[in-house]
Computed example of a mutant assay.
Amino acid sequence: MDLPDTAPPHDSSPLESAAGAPQSEPTTDLLADGRPPVERGTAASEQSERRKRVVRPGDLIFAGASRGSGILLLVVMAAIAVFLTIRSVHAISVDGGNFFTTQGYDIEDTPMVFGMSALVLGTVVSAVVAMVLAVPVSIGVALFISHLAPRRMAQALGYVVDLLAAVPSIVYGLWGALFLVPHMLGVNAWLNQYFGWTYVFKQQMPGDQPRSLFTVGVLLAIMILPIVTAVTREIFLQVPRAHEEAALALGATRWEVIRTAVLPFARSGIVSASMLGLGRALGETMAVATVLSPSLVLSLHITDPGGSTIAQNIATQFGDALGDGRDALIASGLVLFVITLLVNGGARLIIARRKEYSGANA
């Protein structure tokens, strides 16, 4: 039986297929509304651009108010700096001593002598003592309120902290003069006995009333503790819950969660809260004037009576000062202004270096 003569199938080569096969036209999938995606995307982009060009009056008002507030703040700061500088230049020109190294301060003498060395030392020492005592306690209290305490107890402690932050300075000063100073006798004696070898806690006049820079530092620590605690507590409460849950899922203990998730996230906020407290410690007047026995002695025996701060010196002498004497006090205010700016500038640098922990990328 003869089979039909059929040609074997012929596989065309890719070149032949490319040359001989007709080119199919590109197909475009139409959307439900009958338009190609390109047209629809173009229309959507045009509509988005049109919406961007439409500016509401409320947006303009808010943007102008925000910009104006920022500019106003810069203008006020510049005005304060210019005023202090102009009044200080004249006072420094009639100063009979060295403005930075002279210990004496007599604005009623002729010529006037007012040096900043003892005042700057007292201001810095009292503020450092306050920060060393207050910041660790504030962080601990904030962690307890935000992560460890039961809800009702945390709410009660939060109210107490906020209430302490609202107490006026003069109330703290009266409490310090009537209660804290007498009770610091035993503390100073203990520090002299066990830490007198450090020179800082060595008492040259043991047994005297402890109206000293150390007592002022303790009082300032109590004053700034509610501020630092309140700000730090709010920062701890902003830690993303997902970070803590991830650490717990990996088997971390509660302390490890705080150490690895909470503290790194809040590090820049803790620095900001500490600088806020330091600003109050540097500029405190009435509480310091109530507790401290002013003397312009350049000494690092911080438990001995005496010492003075810039703010306390201005508060006690400004009422009786006239003419060049008042300009001398303004010059000391300029020094305090510069110290505050340097401290805040340093804090901004620290925060900028730790910006990966600021929570902006969380």
Results as ranks from 00 to 15, higher is better:
V76T: 07
D324K: 11
G319V: 09
E25R: 09
G140P: 04
T260V: 04
L3N: 06
P150T: 08
I351S: 03
L119D: 02
S117W: 00
G96R: 04
H90T: 12
L341H: 05
L349H: 10
M184T: 00
A315G: 02
R51N: 07
Y105D: 04
L276C: 02
E46I: 12
T85P: 01
V271R: 01
V113W: 01
L282C: 11
E16K: 06
G20V: 07
P264D: 00
G345Q: 02
G104C: 08
L342P: 05
L263I: 14
G279L: 01
A360V: 12
A79K: 03
F83M: 15
L322V: 10
I227D: 00
M223E: 00
I170H: 01
T6F: 06
F179W: 13
I227Q: 09
L248Q: 15
S66H: 10
E244I: 13
D59T: 13
I80P: 03
G41N: 14
I314L: 13
V128T: 14
L349R: 12
L250C: 10
V239Q: 03
R280G: 05
P37Y: 02
D320Y: 02
M131I: 12
G104Q: 10
A273P: 10
F144P: 02
G20I: 04
E256M: 11
D304H: 05
V160E: 04
A63V: 03
V239Y: 00
V124C: 05
A289H: 04
P168V: 01
G20P: 02
E39D: 14
L341F: 13
V288I: 07
T253S: 15
L220K: 01
L298C: 04
L60D: 12
S212E: 05
E39W: 10
R152T: 14
P210I: 04
D5S: 10
T6N: 07
D162G: 06
I339M: 15
E245F: 11
V291A: 00
Q209T: 14
A7E: 14
L300H: 06
G173T: 05
L300V: 09
P111G: 09
R152F: 14
V239H: 03
S274N: 06
S24A: 15
L278D: 07
A43S: 11
F100W: 15
E49F: 07
A289C: 01
V54E: 14
S13R: 08
G34K: 13
F179H: 03
N313V: 01
A65W: 10
I330V: 15
V216S: 08
R40L: 12
S332N: 04
L237Q: 15
R35A: 08
V132F: 05
I92Q: 13
L30M: 15
L174M: 09
I139Y: 08
L276Y: 01
W175D: 05
V338I: 15
L15G: 01
A142E: 10
V200F: 13
K202S: 13
P210V: 08
A352K: 14
R50L: 13
S24C: 02
Y159N: 11
D95R: 11
L143S: 03
T6Q: 09
V55M: 09
P210C: 10
Q47Y: 04
V160I: 15
L84M: 07
F114W: 15
R40T: 12
V89F: 14
S274W: 00
N98D: 15
H90W: 08
V271E: 08
A130V: 03
R40Y: 09
F201G: 07
A79C: 12
I86E: 07
M286P: 01
V141E: 00
A266L: 07
G97N: 06
D327S: 11
P305I: 02
